[in-house]
Design a protein around this nucleic acid. Sequence first.
DNA 1: CATGAATGAGCTTTCATTCAT
DNA 2: GATGAATGAAAGCTCATTCAT
Lengths: 200, 200, 200, 200
Amino acid sequence: MTAQKQDLKPRKKPVQGRSKAVVDAILQASIRVLDREGYSAFNTNRVAEIAGVSVGSVYQYFPSKEAILMTILRQKRQNLLDKFNIVATADNGDDLTSAVTRLVGATIEAQGDWPRLAKVLALAEHDLPVEQSGRGLKIEIADSLTNVLAHYGIEQPKVAALDIMAIVDALIHSAQSTRKDANAHLQRNIVNAVMGYLQV
Amino acid sequence: MTAQKQDLKPRKKPVQGRSKAVVDAILQASIRVLDREGYSAFNTNRVAEIAGVSVGSVYQYFPSKEAILMTILRQKRQNLLDKFNIVATADNGDDLTSAVTRLVGATIEAQGDWPRLAKVLALAEHDLPVEQSGRGLKIEIADSLTNVLAHYGIEQPKVAALDIMAIVDALIHSAQSTRKDANAHLQRNIVNAVMGYLQV
Amino acid sequence: MTAQKQDLKPRKKPVQGRSKAVVDAILQASIRVLDREGYSAFNTNRVAEIAGVSVGSVYQYFPSKEAILMTILRQKRQNLLDKFNIVATADNGDDLTSAVTRLVGATIEAQGDWPRLAKVLALAEHDLPVEQSGRGLKIEIADSLTNVLAHYGIEQPKVAALDIMAIVDALIHSAQSTRKDANAHLQRNIVNAVMGYLQV
Amino acid sequence: MTAQKQDLKPRKKPVQGRSKAVVDAILQASIRVLDREGYSAFNTNRVAEIAGVSVGSVYQYFPSKEAILMTILRQKRQNLLDKFNIVATADNGDDLTSAVTRLVGATIEAQGDWPRLAKVLALAEHDLPVEQSGRGLKIEIADSLTNVLAHYGIEQPKVAALDIMAIVDALIHSAQSTRKDANAHLQRNIVNAVMGYLQV
DNA sequence: CATGAATGAGCTTTCATTCAT
DNA sequence: GATGAATGAAAGCTCATTCAT
């Protein structure tokens, strides 16, 4: 009776202790499965197995596998939003190029150690019910970027923000799937594309 | 269960007649389901229902669900490759910007009327066995673009080609998911980003 | 997409042929399980096993196990309603006692060869969602009886009808669970109780 | 899984103090869940939740879910048996109708405020192992009634006792499910049916 | 060839019961 | 004793695929 089909939020807020560890294990296992075995291998039995817990425990904390996906998506985006806010706030005497460079750097950093994950998550999002999906945070990130762009007098900053996020993501994914060595030029290339887009 | 998972090519090449019509119906139905209902709603029974044929007929022409996916992927890419080759061949007295503009235009055209499809196909591709996937055509497209870039003296044209394809796709998707009105500036924006990336 | 959780109606109307046979097998198996193994042994896997079909086939025709229960309930009640209507219609020169006697006889007959089934069904009905349950037919049966009672000038015939149905069922169940030999006096006993209730 | 399914008696007899309170809370919660949410919603986690104790505590006092059911059944029946014995003992100068009237009154009283409970318990009883079920007390009640009937010269008093109990229960349930207002005539109606059955 | 009923492996989810704290 | 997180057997249900007609 507590959680219904559509409920993509975690079932409990395990503030500390053992529960927290189990939830973390489930999330880490999910990330690992998604990254290493792909979306179609992502099922609750596999997750439980990798996490070293029983299926029952998975359902103790998440009402469905979609809820796990949502939680991961939200965490990743919150992480990125935090970085963005730091960069945006610290933005005192910079020029646009410096600001963009730092935001791009933050995004690259936020991708972490799971190359395929971001891609799979981004794509899997299309399978989630629109209402409950993690779009809220995506919009917040876009807003943060919009503010920075507006501050530098960019026209239509809202549209530009979304386009730029798309460019950045695309180039990071492209780099990850084609070059295993962390491309030293990645950040510069992305900044170039973004500045080109902005025509400044 | 006795299915040969590796066999992702269509079972027959129905060059004409009724067979061709059935295959087309199946492919159109698949595209429609993928685009409108998402990857997780894509199943052979649903496709057969929408296509107005029986499941049996689906398996008459495609050895597996994945084979349908592969065929769609290949068709989309072949279509794009054809356009690219025309542009590349016709490339006589152009400068780089003109060439890029025309290639971008070709890509925009090739996306057709199915906004979510490309994303969903990308997700699906992750679940396909690497060997048999549509990567072949992707590489041919990249090669075509690589030649154009090399012709204009761009360094590392292979890497650049892949990155540019990623940029172009990303901006097209961004435009599709955020602006319903066909953005008149889309092509120009993309060209700007690409030229910025190329630093020329 | 066709049938939702609440849908307790069969998924297809198998008018003839093989389908009809499968549906019958499922219903017969369900009756057998309910009667011989009890309500808690009634699950779709067991039913499929006894019916000699696969679980998939069960779900091809019934969206849930509750739907099977509902179908059985409805069939039994329709059967009883038909008998009632025959008796009620044929009711020309009878006195009340004769009419009641015949209606009671019809009810006893309708119970058929599954002694525990009627009881389990009656009880299991309380576990079904109220809206979709087979109450419709129960009311029709009660209405049929109400008409007969009203015709003989019984006061509050609606209430009386429901009470009488309860008495009749109770005594049939009582007879079945305590005396294995078909009690020759059963019908007379029931009629006596009913006439006593009616105070005529 | 190591549970002794046969052990349907409460684990301890907590005659007084806190234990008694916990056991009562569990039983009341169970009754409430069974009556309000139905048999299929009756599970130990839900009972614990409603009772305001932990599942662990439920298993401290009851070896299994069935044991709770058994205890409730026994309590209800013991309650009725006590009332019956008082009536039967006090039976000095009465005629049969008076005796029946008083026994019926006692039964109506014993039903308490949980209209669906008796039906749901009856359904549950079908799923219980025969040996350990509450049949013992049912037989004692029947014996008590049998004695009264025999005292007034009724033939086959044993069979009659069971039938009468069935009639009484049926009419009480019928009244509860169809008329919310406590039917003032209920007792009289039942007595009429019983006397009719007894043909006296 | 076309059909669509039938199959059953595999995934989702629940819940009785245990046991470490 | 009390707690409630963890377990995992067992049900529910879906859908890729086959095959008799």
